[in-house]
């Protein structure tokens, strides 16, 4: 299988980047997308050229490290998967594949396809945890949580922080990410004690990091590898109003 990669190359944060073409032969359709990039990098090493920098860790769709914009979609042409779950069988022999880094003012490019997503970490630092000491793992049923509530919290907690929501959003809004983190904690009894402070501070951080507003295009929930529903954003808004009223 042969494809033409058009890949964003950028030496460093302050360098000017550009799209470069790479014709790559010898791929097969069972390769994951990242393996195809590995293959290309091996060819570049043999030619004594600089390899393409891209991020990955688990390569099984759970860590949220990999993430690039492929042919106009976050994580490639399919809905709700990570880049490592994308395989070359999704492309045809001879296809041109455009690969770009996540684009957002809050995600500056570090090198090639790698962006700095620490803005998301700083949102988490504002309250996506509970301050109480929990000790060792307690008996699971010592705090009774209705199944429905546990499921909702788990659905939100599934967020792996890959940043596809920000990348695909025309406003670079981090609302889906922040909402998932807030709703995860605020819907559980352990998170209740600090619920209002959490909403206010995490949403404030989201704002000062330079992310845009949510205008409900719905793109984020289509690209989210964990299928986190956009309803979470409406729920976060409700929590924010409640936190202001009860302050």
């Amino acid at each position: 299988m042969k494809v033409i990669f058009k890949i964003w190359r950028q030496e460093g944060p302050n360098e000017k980047g550009t799209i470069r073409d790479y014709e790559v032969d010898g791929l097969n359709e069972d390769m994951s997308f990242l393996e195809a990039l590995d293959h290309l990098n091996e060819l570049l090493v043999l030619k004594n050229e600089k390899v393409i920098a891209f991020e990955y860790d688990c390569r099984e769709g759970i860590c949220g490290q990999c993430g690039v914009f492929i042919n106009g979609r976050a994580h490639g042409p399919h809905d709700n998967i990570t880049t490592c779950q994308l395989h070359m069988r999704s492309f045809k022999d001879g296809d041109t594949i455009v690969v770009e880094p996540w684009r957002a003012a809050s995600f500056p490019v570090i090198k090639d396809l790698i962006v700095d997503r620490s803005a998301l970490d700083r949102i988490i630092e504002q309250g996506a945890f509970i301050t109480a000491k929990t000790g060792t793992a307690p008996e699971a049923n010592s705090i009774l949580i209705p199944k429905e509530t546990a499921d909702r919290a788990m659905d939100a907690a599934a967020c792996i922080g890959c940043g596809a929501c920000v990348a695909t959003c025309k406003n670079s809004s981090a609302a889906l990410f922040t909402a998932a983190k807030i709703n995860h904690f605020n819907s559980l009894p352990q998170g209740k004690a600090e619920e209002h402070k959490r909403v206010a501070e995490m949403m404030f951080q989201m704002e000062i990091e330079g992310f845009g507003s949510c205008t409900f295009t719905g793109a984020c929930e289509v690209e989210c590898p964990e299928s986190i529903s956009i309803t979470n954003i409406a729920e976060m808004n409700a929590r924010y109003v409640k936190s202001k009223l009860l302050k």
Partner: peptide, 24 residues
Amino acid sequence: RNRKAKPEKYVVNHSNENSTWTSQ
């Protein structure tokens, strides 16, 4: 403000595959 949050646009963007034209 939203435009400022996305200063650099994608070279290829198929936003029509994940959202409506109206919402964009």
